[in-house]
């Protein structure tokens, strides 16, 4: 499949993510949108990796082709850890102010 389709998909997902972050006020949805953006990038990474693996330069090296694929797994692990922290923050926020509306949290003190 043409690389352009992957790029178009990733871009769409990423844009949805950005718009979601910008327009929504619910912290959980914003969080999900951030994840969406992350995964859009992951997708792009994998797609490029695949494309790159077909090139002559990559064929010369043995394990070069699979680097990005492994890297994506790595990102997913980190993202999972980040999600747990992020959700914990949102839970704490809900406990304290009884809302998940981010506009409500516009100051650090008081």
């Amino acid at each position: 499949m043409d690389i352009k389709s992957y790029i178009a998909l990733a871009l769409t997902l990423f844009t949805i993510g950005i718009i979601g972050v910008l327009v929504r006020r619910n912290a959980i949805i914003i969080f999900m949108c951030v994840e969406l953006m992350l995964n859009a990038v992951n997708l792009l990474l994998v797609a490029f990796s695949k494309m790159h693996a077909l090139s002559t330069a990559a064929k010369a090296s043995v394990n070069y082709a699979s680097d990005a694929q492994i890297f994506v797994f790595f990102i997913m692990v980190v993202a999972a850890a980040e999600v747990s922290v992020g959700l914990a923050i949102i839970v704490m926020m809900y406990r304290n102010v009884h809302t998940v509306d981010v506009n409500f949290l516009n100051r650090l003190k008081n």
């Binding site: 950005i18 972050v21 506009n103 650090l108």
Partner: peptide, 13 residues
Amino acid sequence: QSGQVGAYVLLMV
């Protein structure tokens, strides 16, 4: 520096 996360993100974008 309004403190609105949305505004920050918008600026970033």
